[in-house]
Amino acid sequence: MTSLTSRRATDPRCFNHFLDPVDMIGCFPAEASMAEINQLAAEHDLYFPLACDPVRSVREHVASLEYAPESTRFGPYVDNVPGMNWKLPGGQLVRIGEQVVKSTTGYDLLRFLLHSGERYGSAQDYVLRLRPLSHERYAGIFTGTPECLQALVEAIVCSSWSHWINCLNWVVSAEDAPFLECYGACLTGEGGHFIDYFSGLAKEHHTSFEPIAENPICPLPAFTIKTTPSQALTLASQCKEALGGHARILSALGVVLMYPEIPINDKQLRELHSRTTMVGGHLFGTAIQPYESSPKETPWIESILNDWRQL
């Protein structure tokens, strides 16, 4: 995809492909890669922050992830995708959501459908909220005992610095003790303030901070666990023990991105499921089958689908 094209659709209200640099919003084909989108956005000094793997499409990201590392600062996908062109089960294309960033017009179908797989149809195009590009970046690694690192995480998320940090991830792997990676973008000239802040905090919490040149690479995970911040590290460590590989935890949000060496089996899945749902969390990703619908929700789902099939 090198330029934005115009498209015809069943519903005349469907979005055309566009990029509005004033509203910092654009509509892109679901198959567009993150690199293509960010290339177009960069022409206007903008970017889409929730990209993990530049060669993978938006559709693949939405199927794998509800939260990307930069969700720590910019929120989940549902808060960064204001609209979609959606193909209904009967084949019609309909517009869902808006091309402005704020709306309370009608029921919020967008957030309901975005990560619903293909159960109610599928997205053809996504309207994405873009953010200003900052040209200075900072990145670093904290190491220390888990207790000291945990206290350091608490100190960061309880301070207003947390609003300005794009990623603050625990990394749990077989080779190393858990450590923290921290990176983001800032205004020109501010990088030094971040490094000073992190270095000071590290000293205060008996940990070390080492600046690094590049942001760590964070590919699309096999699955993610959405839980509470306090439960995330324990769950991630247990999963890594059982499945090998490594995990990244978005520490402020209680999101675990899992990269296991072996696939999760049914028993492990059931156990993980019950521990996360107990606190109102869930599992998500291409390696996870959608949950069975509960007896309570089955008639709701059938009613909605029946109505939509009849259109």
Partner: peptide, 15 residues
């Protein structure tokens, strides 16, 4: 507290 779907297949809180 975890902000997910809980034991539901769909994310009904969004609606």
């Amino acid at each position: 507290p975890a902000g997910g779907r809980g034991d539901w297949r769909e994310d009904w809180k969004r609606l």
